[in-house]
């Protein structure tokens, strides 16, 4: 379970997250929607400790992410993350991209790490691209590579930060299908997205972010069908 309590995050004077409360139970898929700059990416960075926080608390299975003694390197192995920007390691083939962390972080042998990598690349539909360098992959393939790379650490949670926002429209579907596949397999996920139809399909809950606060959270039918908040209504009217 990921439990976020009264989370505060600022960059200098800019308050980006202003008292976020959010709980993600095992097996749940929570989508986060909201305008650009509302703090969605920042929240994910805070959840796996890439950014420091100024107040509140984030616990992952009872471990306080930002406590002094927390071994972040160990904790992050359980929190897979896929970023908005494509960031495959350009100097490594697809297989090496995925095999690297299992080998140097999990300590698997070279052969085992490659086996794990191949399995995950097949999983995301890149079984025929093992020896290809990222520069030869489309954006959609690069994002699926990033998903495979995260999965190879066998995480308990996956955090997706607008994995499709930098993609050409025709490539969005293949990435969403991969995320949907993970949802069907029971992966616990926080999915930041601006694909409203996808969020409606795949989520157990949808949270609408507005200026660093959770304006409204509820089942997809509530958020997309009958939102309680005027702000949510206005946002959805704009993006549809």
């Amino acid at each position: 379970m990921i439990e976020i309590t009264d989370l505060q995050k600022s960059y200098g004077n800019l308050e980006v997250l202003r008292g976020i409360n959010l709980t993600v139970r095992r097996g749940e898929v929570i989508s986060i929607i909201g305008a650009s700059g509302s703090g969605k990416s920042t929240l994910l960075y805070c959840v796996n400790g890439l950014e420091t926080i100024q107040g509140g608390k984030i616990e992952v299975d009872g471990i306080d992410v930002h406590a002094r003694g927390t071994d972040l390197n160990k904790l992050r192995q359980r929190l897979g993350m896929v970023f908005q920007q494509w960031n495959a390691f350009p100097h490594l083939t697809a297989l090496e991209n995925v095999a690297l962390a299992p080998r140097i972080v999990r300590g698997l042998s070279k052969a085992d790490s490659r086996a794990v990598a191949e399995k995950q690349l097949v999983h995301v539909g890149l079984g025929d691209k093992l020896e290809v360098y990222p520069s030869k992959l489309s954006g959609g393939q690069q994002q699926r590579l990033a998903i495979a790379r995260a999965l190879a650490m066998e995480p308990d949670y996956m955090l997706f930060d607008e994995a499709t926002s930098a993609l050409d429209p025709e490539l969005v579907g293949e990435v969403l299908d991969t995320i949907r596949l993970l949802a069907e397999e029971g992966m616990t996920m926080i999915v930041v997205t601006h694909e409203m139809g996808f969020a409606r399909d795949v989520s157990d809950k949808v949270a609408y972010f507005d200026e660093g606060q959770v304006e409204e959270i509820g089942p997809p039918d509530q958020i997309f069908g009958a939102p309680h908040s005027e702000k949510t209504k206005r946002f959805l009217a704009k993006v549809r």
Binding site: L50, N73, R76, F83, Q85, I104, M153
Partner: peptide, 13 residues
């Protein structure tokens, strides 16, 4: 890029 380094760190490096 910062996010490429973060990608490494997010894998537990």
């Amino acid at each position: 890029p910062k996010t490429t380094r973060w990608a490494g760190r997010s894998l537990g490096m």
